[in-house]
Amino acid sequence: MYDAPNLGATVEQKDIKISAKKVQVYYGETHAIKDVDIEVQDKTVTAFIGPSGCGKSTFLRCLNRMNDTIDICRVEGDILLDGEDIYDKRVDPVQLRAKVGMVFQKPNPFPKSIYDNVAYGPRIHGLAKNKAELDEIVEKALRRGAIWNEVKDRLDAPGTGLSGGQQQRLCIARAVATEPEVLLMDEPCSALDPIATAQVEELIDELRSRYSVVIVTHSMQQAARVSQKTAFFHLGHLVEYDDTANIFTNPKDERTESYITGRIG
């Protein structure tokens, strides 16, 4: 099930899920992302690594237009999801985000019951016709979030009452409940202890069978453990993007090498 560091694993060619061309992001006057080109594959875990402030989280938030909620943020260039430009005027970010779910750095369950947390997405998107269907969706999502066994007896308890690791898995379950095609994770383990981290990492590996997962992480070990492809960002540039194994064993760019060996970061 859980295949530890998959450094040597071969990565077969898969469909392109997201493709970005010449993406620029500006925060007011600051040019935060410069000329990023990347193709994210389906059914693959892609890790974004790089030092703090390199723009990896900013870029991640472009992929489901979360940056729209920030007034001063401006995005240029094309980002295509299944060949459709997500920044097209006709695209409704609400529909986009239903397809591209997101999990955040700090677990952020709503101050509602566990059931309502998971049912929130299906309800607003109208995925269930009746209570029975909704129950089914919630159970399925909680199972995929690998937390069903822990909470099935207390679905009415508030989500905020769970432990940190459980909260984060609840948030993952909440995100998968809307049947997304892509799952974005912004440092999902940074607020968790090592045991909870291991559980979440295990879960990410399982999610790969269904979704295209993009994870931003600080920890190179984590990237090596969970991802098949890795992109290294530095000062707003995408420096290198390759199979994880190649990045960690045979980096082509000397900045990547310096970062991996701990000289910059």
Binding site: A98, F104, Y120, G121, A175
Partner: peptide, 22 residues
């Protein structure tokens, strides 16, 4: 906290749904 809003938007909720339900 802003995290509540992010969580809701991240699931594809509109602003009014976020306000009313979260």
């Amino acid at each position: 906290p802003q995290a509540m809003r992010d969580g809701s938007y991240g699931l594809g909720a509109t602003q009014s749904e976020t306000v009313k339900q979260v």
